[in-house]
Amino acid sequence: MSRRRISPGLAVLATLALAGCAPAPGKGLFKRQPDPTAGIPEPTSGRYLALQQVQAPALQVVVEDRSQRDLMLFSHRLDGVELWYGRDGVQVGLRDGMLAYTRGIGGDLMAADTRQSHALLASGQSGTAKRFHSYLNGNDQIETDSYICDIRRVQDFTLAIGEARVPTWYMVETCHGPDLIFENYYWVDRRSGVIQQSRQLANPFSGRVAFQRVLS
């Protein structure tokens, strides 16, 4: 994954994604790329190279606003969170498929508590959940924001991941915070409750990041 492009002043935003109709579940960010590593620069992170050598599990990642893509590699698990490394040393952390941590994408998500949302998603239930995000702001201060989220199971959907066909629930989470409204989208494996694909807000600055597991 590549680093943050610069865009004008931020701090507060009114709306990131207006709540409304969820996009069709098949509008995939991963479909257009037959070769997931095409056009991505060579790795510079020593850790990434080491993980490549041991053929660590991979995760396709797209920072949507910038159309920046990477095949991130699984490094290790810390306190229940999977840490994935990008080729330039950028990291994301997923707790049960929910984004809990970013480092190096700009306006980083320092930590997140998404347990309530995950409980609903993993069981395919609609409902309301609270989630909490900590960001590092431009004045080196941590800002913790709370969001109230409506989670809806929109439809069943057969997700194509490579050659595999995975039966999923397509679920939408609409969150309202003090100065931000955003939507996250999840494709939850109906058999296991595992989030196989998702589009989640990383932070107000970098916007949404899309993830898809690479099935081995």
Binding site: R3, R4, I6, S7, P8, G9, L10, A11, S45, S75, H76, R77, L78, D79, L83, Y85, G86, D88, G89, V90, Q91, R103, G104, G106, G107, D108, Y135, L136, N137, G138, N139, D140, N203, F205
Partner: peptide, 22 residues
């Protein structure tokens, strides 16, 4: 007009640095 508290990039552009290894 600009505000010193809000640079263009909130926390800068840099790699993720080392992560805690349990």
């Amino acid at each position: 007009t600009f505000n010193p508290k809000t640079p263009r990039i909130p926390d800068g552009i840099d790699d993720g640095g080392p992560s805690v290894v349990p």
